[in-house]
Amino acid sequence: MPGEMISDKPERISYAYVDGGRTFSTVVGLYQEGKLVPLEGPYDPLPDDYVVGIVTEVKFSGYSVEINCPYPAFLSSREIRERYVMGDALFAKIQSVDEVRSIELADAQKLPPGKLVKVSSVKIPRIIGKKNSMVDMIKANTGCDIFAGRSGYVWIAGKGNAPLAEKAVKMIESQAHTRGLTDRVAAYLKSQPQVIIDQGAGAPQQAQQEPQGERRENYRRESRPQSGGYRGSGGSRPHGGGYRGGSGQNRQ
C-alpha cells in the first residue's frame, strides 16, 4: 500500500522511496525478498522489450505506433521493408527510449488478422510465465498463435480456438496476483471443449522474450534517486546517458 513501510533501513527498491532512514512503498504491490512487484500501473517503456502495437499515423519518415503506454512510439521507415497503413497491428522491439520518453521501435513485423486483447502491462509476465510456460500451454491447448507484448497488448491469431485463448488470458489477468495459477489455467483449458478451427492464418514464429525480470531490476536501481524521496532531484531523471541501447549487463 502507498505509504506502508517495507523496510526499516534505507534501501533501493523499485517503486519505493526512502524517508528518515526507512523505506516506504509507493504503490499497491507484493513485497517479497527485496522486490516490490506492483499489482497495477502504467507501462514503463524499456529498451529491448518486445511490444505489440497499432499503427496510428503514417508520417513522411515512418510510423507512429500506439503500444498501450502514455507515450506514442515511432518506427522509422529505415528499419523496415514492408509498408503499413493505419490500423495495422505489429510486433516490434523497443530500440531506445530517451529521457523525455521518445520511444523508437525496430525489428517490426506485421501481424496477420487476429484479435488484440488489452490487459494491464504488469500482468504480462504472468501471461508469458516462466520460460514461456503459460503462453506455450495456451498455444498447445487452443491451437492459437499468441504474441504477448510487454506493454499490455496480447495478440491472438484467428486460427484455433481463439475465444478460449482470450478467456484464458482474461482469467490470468484477473488472478495474476495469486499462487498456483498455471495449474488452475491448465485445468480450465482441459475442462473446455476442444474446438480447433483451422483458418490457415500463418503467423511468424515468436522470438520471445525473458529474462526480463532481472534486467528490469537493474534499470530501476540506476534510475531512482537514492534518498529523500523523488522530490528535490531537480526534476531531471538522474541516470544521464545510461538509457540508450545496449543490453542489461552493460548498463551496470
Binding site: P2, G3, F24, T26, V27, P38, G41, P42, Y230
Partner: peptide, 11 residues
C-alpha cells in the same frame, strides 16, 4: 489513484 497504480508517497 492507488487502484490505478499511480505511485504515491502516501494514501
Amino acid at each position: 489513484l492507488a487502484d490505478a497504480g499511480i505511485p504515491m508517497k502516501d494514501m
